[in-house]
């Protein structure tokens, strides 16, 4: 007896549900819950992290990310404008920079920056101590990624906007600042927020620069406590902290995308 396509689809869905439930049940039955609780949800271990995990580690992660993002945004804007410039060397410099910092692992960039600056310029320190160099490193990497997003946003602004602005007598720079860039940013707000989420996780690389107990960020703090406690609960704890930052941002992104999709 041949089944109608709709019945077949319903049967397939039903089978998938059953398979899913069976797999979950089997996993639950096979897992050693005692060990899992001891390894992943050990309240004593979690308690040793309080309140430093929030007051110091989470705070530092937020600060490193925010500063890196701020610097990266500015740098990304400059790079994007250079890419769009009519001056050849600006375009080549910008393209080279973007390709390099997007193509090399962020970890390598961090290490090279840290050691490289003190070797190349002895006696010179990037202003701002650890925060300064973390901002520089995160900003260089983040900026390279954001440059492309910003450039696309600027190019997405209809050409007529620039033409109208210039026909009113505005200079190219003035038209960019007042008319094109504000509109570009409205367009790229969702992908930029995604960049912020990615940068939050990249802030974990700051550990290679070295840190004091006051400068520690979430991942390094988690690893230190992991070594101390010899179970994985610290990692679960910092993972939750990261989600505390990234999930609200994701929600914001989705809301923004929905709103711009609805708007004319």
């Amino acid at each position: 007896m041949a089944m109608s396509p709709r019945k077949r689809a319903r049967l397939s869905r039903g089978i998938q549900y059953v398979v899913l439930v069976v797999l979950v049940l089997v996993a639950i039955a096979l897992m050693d819950w005692g060990r899992i609780q001891e390894q992943f949800f050990n309240l004593d271990s979690a308690r040793t992290m309080w309140p430093d995990v929030i007051l110091i580690a989470l705070k530092n992660t937020i600060i490193y990310t925010a500063c890196g993002f701020g610097f990266g945004l500015l740098l990304g804007l400059v790079l994007a404008l250079m890419r769009l410039s009519s001056v050849g060397p600006y375009r080549w410099l910008s393209t080279g920079f973007i390709e390099f910092f997007r193509g090399v692992p962020a970890l390598v960039v961090f290490i090279a920056l840290d050691i490289g600056i003190s070797l190349a310029f002895p006696g010179y320190a990037v202003p701002g101590d650890k925060l300064g160099i973390a901002t520089l490193a995160l900003g260089l990497v983040g900026g390279a990624y954001m440059a492309e997003t910003i450039r696309a946003g600027i190019q997405a602004v209809p050409k007529g906007q620039m033409e109208a602005a210039r026909s009113l007598g505005m200079s190219h720079t003035r038209a960019m600042i007042s008319i094109v860039i504000p509109q570009a940013f409205r367009i790229i707000l969702p992908p930029l927020t995604n960049e912020l989420i990615l940068l939050t996780k990249d802030s974990s690389l700051v550990y290679v620069l070295g840190y004091t107990s006051a400068q520690v960020e979430l991942t390094a703090f988690g690893r230190e406590t992991l070594n101390q406690e010899r179970n994985l609960t610290p990692l679960v704890a910092i993972a939750l902290c990261y989600l505390l930052i990234t999930i609200p941002l994701s929600i914001v992104v989705r809301r923004m995308e929905a709103r711009s999709g609805r708007a004319r």
Binding site: L209, G210, Y211, T212, V216
Partner: peptide, 21 residues
């Protein structure tokens, strides 16, 4: 005493100290 935690290769190459960390 203030403890500064850093990757070991920076210590054993002397960079952490010469860099002023």
């Amino acid at each position: 005493q203030e403890i500064f935690n850093t990757p070991f290769e920076k210590i054993e190459t002397g960079l952490s100290m010469s860099q002023g960390d």
